[in-house]
């Protein structure tokens, strides 16, 4: 495997060279090849990797690195720093509206984990003293409403639905009214999965947005996503102007390079990660950029 022990590989490559004398720019280029392979193996997008490598190289050929006693470690440090910086430096939180309800809308490709994440968020914010309402705007997927109702029931949060015969824009509008009438200060809108290139369904989301003006539009991304993550994120961001990203299924063994791709092309923070099918507090975490950087590099 390309990936096994990237850190060790880098260190030994550079340390060996160091033994022969000075580490040169060419040696750094060779070491960067290993990093490039590792990132690609982790599913970081090709173009994102290219830009990243160029940036790291620039810093790594600096005299203080090449002439240090431990160039391998220095370079690893730079890679990690740059990666963490790219991942976002702060743990972003939800922006609560001063005028309730705070409205959050979950969007993304089919099967990414939106409905499940809706349940997790409802549960988490309920525990923090909010009074959430889940709104069922997926009228397309078979039994999507029933799924959300069961999910809501599991975390004891009400679910607003108008069935699957009404327009999702109307459902969203009515859902907000319902929240206002019933003192729900936190609304989570579950939308149907859709392709980023589906203009009709992307238009539907734009309509919901202009009607209910969500405070947070969060793009839900499967952590196993490959090179296409950039296309998806770019489209959703362009069409909707997302406020952040949620990364799901990190309980798997994927490196999760999609995190880096999505972050790089949208510049939007990753706010939460999903870690399982259950809805409890153990299955959702605030995003930690440094941990993700290490995971992607396998270090």
């Amino acid at each position: 495997m390309v990936f096994e022990g990237l850190a060790e590989k880098l260190q030994s490559t550079l340390q060996k060279l160091k033994g022969k004398g000075k580490v040169s720019e060419k040696d750094v280029t060779e070491a960067m090849r290993e990093v490039k392979m590792a990132l690609l193996e982790a599913d970081v997008n090709f173009k994102v990797v290219k830009d990243f490598i160029n940036k790291v190289k620039e810093r790594a050929v600096g005299a203080e690195v090449l002439e240090s006693l431990t160039p391998g470690q220095q370079i690893i440090k730079i890679v990690n720093e740059e990666l963490t910086a790219l991942m976002g430096t702060t743990q972003s939180k939800i922006n609560f509206s001063s005028k309730p309800p705070t409205i959050l809308m979950l969007v993304g490709l089919q099967g990414a984990g939106k409905t499940t994440m809706g349940g997790k968020l409802a549960n988490m914010f309920k525990k923090q003293g909010k009074r959430p309402l889940l709104v069922a705007c997926d009228i397309y997927r078979p039994a999507a409403i029933k799924q959300l109702q069961i999910v809501g029931g599991q975390v004891d949060v009400p679910v607003f639905t108008l069935g699957d015969k009404e327009n999702p824009v109307k459902i969203a509008n009515e859902g907000i009214k319902h929240a206002l009438d019933h003192g729900n200060d936190f609304v989570i809108i579950d939308t149907a999965g859709r392709l980023h290139i589906d203009d009709d369904l992307m238009g539907e989301l734009q309509n919901i947005k202009s009607n209910v003006k969500p405070h947070e539009i969060l793009l839900v991304v499967d952590a196993m996503t490959g090179q296409d993550a950039v296309n998806v994120a770019e489209h959703f961001n362009e069409k909707l102007g997302i406020d952040g990203v949620i990364l799901t299924k990190l309980d798997g063994d994927t490196r999760g390079g999609a995190a880096l791709s999505v972050r790089a092309v949208t510049g939007k923070p990753i706010k939460f990660v999903g870690l399982g099918e259950k809805l409890n507090e153990n299955s959702i975490e605030v995003f930690h950029p440094d941990r993700m950087a290490s995971r992607i590099l396998g270090m």
């Binding site: 490709l109 290139i197 499967d222 196993m224 996503t225 063994d253 994927t254």
Partner: peptide
């Protein structure tokens, strides 16, 4: 839409279940 993790998926499911075929979904995307 899945990246390299699909290889791991295939290997381990194959160990558990002797896979006879694959279905590749969501090719209507990009």
């Amino acid at each position: 839409t899945t990246g390299q993790n699909a290889i791991q998926q295939a290997k381990i499911f194959n160990e558990a279940a002797d896979i006879t075929g694959l279905i590749l979904t969501k090719l209507d995307g990009t």
